[in-house]
Design a protein around this nucleic acid. Sequence first.
RNA 1: UGGGGCGUCGCCAAGCGGUAAGGCACUGGAUUUUGAUUCCAGCAUUCCCAGGUUCGAUCCCUGGCGCCCCAGCCA
Length: 559
Amino acid sequence: MTSNDQAAPAANNFLRTIIEEDLKSGKHSSIVTRFPPEPNGYLHIGHAKAICINFGLARDFGGRCHLRFDDTNPAREEQEYIDSIKESVRWLGFDWGEHLYYASDNFEQLYQWATFLIEGGKAYVEDLNADEIRAHRGTLTEPGTDSPYRSRSVGENLDLFSRMHAGEFPDGTRVLRAKIDMASPNISLRDPVLYRIIHAPHPHVGDAWKIYPMYDFAHGQSDAIERITHSICTLEFESHKPLYEWFLDNLPVPARPRQYEFARLNLTYTVMSKRKLQELVQLGIVSGWDDPRMPTLVGIKRRGYTAAAVRNFCEQIGVGRSDSWIDASILEDCVRTDLNESAPRAMAVLRPIKLVIDNYPADRTEELQAANHPQKPEMGNRTIFFSREIWIDADDFMETPSKGFHRLTVGGEVKLRFGYIIKCTGVFRDEDGTITELHGEYDPASREGIHTADGRKVKGVIHWVSAPHAVAAEVRLFDRLFSDPNPDRGGADYKQFLNPGSVETLIECKLEATLAGADVETRYQFERMGYFRQDPKDSLSDKLVFNRIVTLRDAWIKK
RNA sequence: UGGGGCGUCGCCAAGCGGUAAGGCACUGGAUUUUGAUUCCAGCAUUCCCAGGUUCGAUCCCUGGCGCCCCAGCCA
């Protein structure tokens, strides 16, 4: 792991309060939580919040957290997702130890419990099709009506259910329903479907089953089987809680877990819904699920965000029950905070323009010492080269400087970081008038500090790279995927808010020589430019590709 | 307009009847060979609104208003 794992001081929140009380009262001697993803896609930053909450609570209170795949719908699930989810949870720095579970491991028990409900007259086989069931369900303001099959005999229900199990009926022809209350004001209690017929191979249990339990019939019972004490989920499951409890009340479960809900994460300038992320991938708007601009954990990881930064972010945003929108800048700030501490500095010129120092001997090369971190001498120094021809960033030169600009101008002076003070004496142009080369002179006595020999202080310091020593590289500048804070808002198509400048690829960048042997995992701060790391997929030793993780704060650009 | 939930600074968020934590953002100023970092200072007489209970209410009660979730054989 890259960096400082200073476990952020855990802010108090309602879940911690509940747990503290449960522990204090002796209701539980230790807690067990779980992170229960359905393996039907890649995890995103919203899942990171759930992971940090569940694993974090277990860690802080000396309990344990299970990883459980809620794999009750084989039509949507794949082994690829199971593998990816495990990898992302591990990447975030959490460990489920021996406690890896699958809801599908409980299929036999759940089947028996379904039979138990039938025997008790609390479940029945429904012959109505999906449309008819919907019609009988009523509406938000009107009660539902009983299905004609609701009063089937226990014997007939048992027979039909076992034949569903045996695979006698095609998909969609029958379901098993709980017999609760078709007039309940809570729609999830209007005889919810427990089992449906799906003839499809399952990633974990193969083709052993022809019927699959619904989420509601699997989740609470799985929690009970695993002896989960605190089953923490997002707010949209709150209206399912009475049903969750109905199953625990009516089945001989071995334990009594409790469900608690928190508000899911909303992040500005991105979309989080699986459907939309999938569309971005399918339409080729991004290069894949791990495109560095994606809010997926694989994308964030490839971008270069550190797990510590993501964890810290989750800690900072807190846990509550009110709908909230977290500004993307908070996440970016967590990344900066982490990387500022850990990232060694280097110099890289992204938009190179050549500067020839006319009074510097053409055959001379100097070795200068550069600190790897301005506040951390223990990180050491490195040697960089200085010569007559150097690259500087085109953005650091203005022929007609705007007000407040204090970098290089014609006739002006600027400090080369770790090097000399130089003055620009003139520009060379091509026929079109575009500047092709800068010329200048250096002050031999100005190696240390920002003062000239006669005591004048220069106001600008710029980065640079010795031209003959430079290493070529491609650098990808990533920005937010969307230009609107809430592209997901109802009404308009979210794609109209795509940020056309979300990636800019610069192919002629010049890096300092030390970067030639850079480790893929090392995040660097390219001084004055931001934090960068090699793209783990595309960077090769003879063709370096760096991703910009995040920019530096810039008080100048804001003006 | 059925049921459930939420409403404290620009964005998050503590607070649980005793007189508004913290973070981010923002604004000043200091240090700085990164317009970075760091530092120091400022930043809600007020908690959606209106009544009520109380010596005292963001916290309790009543009534409004606003927003979110639920009518998949998805999770």
